[in-house]
């Protein structure tokens, strides 16, 4: 089963769509934006280079968690690879647990790379405890998105899951303020943003870098979405794999 997990990780890391859009894209965007605005004061009361770091790490983690779950899962259901796994002694629960664990693991490169570039290129520095807290919230906060990815993969065909996942990543990034601060987009937009898990996910990161603490509203919203999407994913996963 460990080898199964290893091959799951390997196949995603070898997938160009994952490496380019999810790992390299946020780093490149960070370098460009921070290069231009890095020294200005940022929206959360920190330097712009720090604000952007959270933004891009959040975007990368969001993309990684959804892209590494939704599309491969939809493809496996359709292509018969899932059937092949199900006729081995691997129990059904082990498949979904492995997928969750690996999707979570594959969130880390996006986070770590953006952090590393921020430190090396923009000279961002924080106490070690704050780095640890930031990594922890941004990692665990990705759980709702992994669940959303699995739900999409269980619900849709591979042809539909691909654009659906991409659109959702874009929409959640945009609404969550992972590309521009939501404040620049007007009142209605901001009201919608307040409801999304991505806005509060980024909020977790911004409060950690600004104050070392967390806002209760962010924690509750992300947790609530995590429970709701986790439930939906579990239900849809069961429905997709039930033996007729």
């Amino acid at each position: 089963m460990l080898y199964y997990a290893w091959t799951e990780a390997l196949r995603t890391l070898r997938n160009r769509r994952y490496t380019i859009f999810v790992v390299l894209f946020p780093v490149a965007l960070y370098l460009i934006n921070a290069g231009i605005y890095g020294d200005q004061p940022g929206a959360a009361g920190v330097r712009q280079s720090v604000y952007l770091m959270v933004q891009m790490a959040g975007y990368g983690a969001l993309g990684a968690s959804m892209m590494s779950s939704a599309v491969p899962w939809a493809q496996e259901r359709r292509s018969g690879w899932l059937s092949h796994l199900r006729i081995t002694p691997l129990p059904g629960w082990a498949i979904v647990v492995t997928k969750l664990a690996i999707a979570m693991l594959l969130v880390l490169p996006s986070l770590v790379l953006v952090f590393a570039v921020a430190v090396l290129q923009q000279g961002v520095s924080m106490p070690l405890g704050r780095w640890a807290a930031l990594a922890a919230v941004m990692w665990l906060g990705a759980i709702p998105f992994v669940a959303l990815g699995l739900a999409i993969g269980s619900l849709l065909s591979p042809e539909a899951a691909q654009p659906a996942a991409v659109l959702l990543v874009f929409a959640l990034s945009l609404l969550g303020g992972l590309w521009f601060p939501v404040e620049v987009m007007g009142g209605t937009f901001q009201a919608i943003a307040e409801l999304t898990p991505s806005y509060h996910y980024a909020g977790l990161g911004w409060s950690v870098v600004a104050s070392g603490g967390l806002a209760l509203g962010d924690v509750l919203t992300v947790t609530g979405w995590g429970i709701a999407l986790g439930g939906a994913a579990a239900y849809l996963y069961r429905r997709a794999t039930v033996r007729a």
Partner: peptide
């Protein structure tokens, strides 16, 4: 029988994982 590893099969439909 399947969980005990007693059965192996080649199905008609069964794509492989292209990256492996």
């Amino acid at each position: 029988a399947v969980l005990a590893g007693e059965v192996g099969a080649m199905l008609q439909q069964g794509e492989l994982i292209p990256e492996l």
